[in-house]
């Protein structure tokens, strides 16, 4: 049986808390392990905050669509937005031995996403960014 969660967020960092509360409640409702809950929340936090901070040049209100689905022990997380084209897979791996001030802003967050999720795919479709992330899960 497939379980889904659909969230519509505004481009305001105050939305991050509402998102993490909803994601945690959905994970717990599906008995998803606390490790997988942490990783899904972390990946969404990093991606969404990046889009909200750097995605739009104007100051207007925009919307991000977040969809989660659980099927066959795997969570699929989709993030869709009409921000500037941005492919997180093209962000170079940060040199973790370099001093922090010499590293690219945002590089650490995207690196974490790649480490904690099991698969990432990016498409630019109909003027929108679509990022699909996969996470194999265990249950609590």
């Amino acid at each position: 049986m497939e379980s889904r969660l659909f969230l519509v967020l505004r481009n305001n960092l105050s939305e991050l808390k509402r998102m993490s509360d909803a994601v945690s409640a959905w994970c717990r409702g599906n008995n998803i392990s606390s490790a997988a809950e942490f990783h899904v929340n972390l990946a969404l936090d990093e991606i969404i905050s990046n889009v909200i901070r750097y995605g739009w040049k104007d100051l207007g209100e925009h919307q991000l669509n977040v969809r989660l689905s659980l099927l066959n022990d795997e969570v699929t997380v989709e993030v869709e937005d009409d921000a500037t084209p941005f492919n997180p897979l093209e962000v170079p791996v940060p040199d973790l031995n370099r001093p922090l001030e010499e590293r690219t802003v945002g590089g650490l967050g995207i690196h974490l996403v790649r480490q904690v999720m099991d698969g990432l795919e990016y498409q630019r479709l109909d003027g929108k960014n679509l990022l699909v992330m996969k996470k194999k899960i265990s249950y609590s």
Binding site: N41, L42, D45, E46, L100, L108, G109, L112
Partner: peptide, 8 residues
């Protein structure tokens, strides 16, 4: 919970 902001 910690994210990249906290690590920084």
């Amino acid at each position: 919970y910690i994210n990249s902001s906290g690590l920084r």
